[in-house]
């Protein structure tokens, strides 16, 4: 599975919840897509699926990193928007989250100048022009997501 089309907010919720059942500590999810694509919304549903209070999940644009520690697995919610194309990963204090205890979910990953891990899942969200649907394109780096993407597809087909 390379793509999923999301037609309504419930589809985004389902994707987030399905992913929450598959993620594990040490995962790195790299989200890209224009303003309003739904990156924070998808992160909120995923966090909710991990047992994190959804009200904790807000746009990290201003503070760059939000930490959610009260779920099944702790999450570092990162946003490179304010850094723009000068993003330097060594600058933002990400190291402590890369040690493997956290799931890293990064918005505006298109600003990443370099790879930040061997195993990453890239997710690009693209809105169609009428803004009726959103298409999520998955791209994996490393092997860890190969089987899980197949499971994600099964999960998305279930009611």
């Amino acid at each position: 599975m390379n793509q999923i089309v999301l037609r309504r907010i419930e589809d985004t919720r389902k994707l987030g919840l399905c992913m929450a059942g598959l993620v594990k500590a040490g995962d790195i999810l790299l989200l890209s897509g224009d303003l309003g694509a739904g990156k924070t919304t998808l992160t909120r549903f995923l966090a909710q699926g991990l047992g994190i209070d959804e009200r904790e999940v807000t746009s990290p644009t201003f503070s760059i990193i939000h930490e959610y520690r009260h779920g099944r697995i702790p999450v570092a919610h990162v946003d490179l928007y304010r850094l723009g194309k000068n993003a330097e990963i060594s600058d933002i204090g990400l190291d402590e989250y890369l040690a493997g205890d956290f799931i890293i979910i990064m918005e505006w990953a298109e600003f990443l100048p370099e790879s930040i891990g061997k195993d990453c899942l890239y997710m690009n969200i693209r809105m169609d022009r009428e803004c009726k649907t959103r298409t999520v394109t998955f791209r994996q780096q490393g092997q860890s997501w190969k089987e899980r993407l197949a499971e994600l597809e099964r999960c998305m087909k279930q009611h």
Binding site: Y81, G84, K85, N86, S90
Partner: peptide, 8 residues
Amino acid sequence: EYGGIVPE
């Protein structure tokens, strides 16, 4: 000038 904040 940098078009974004550079934390460092």
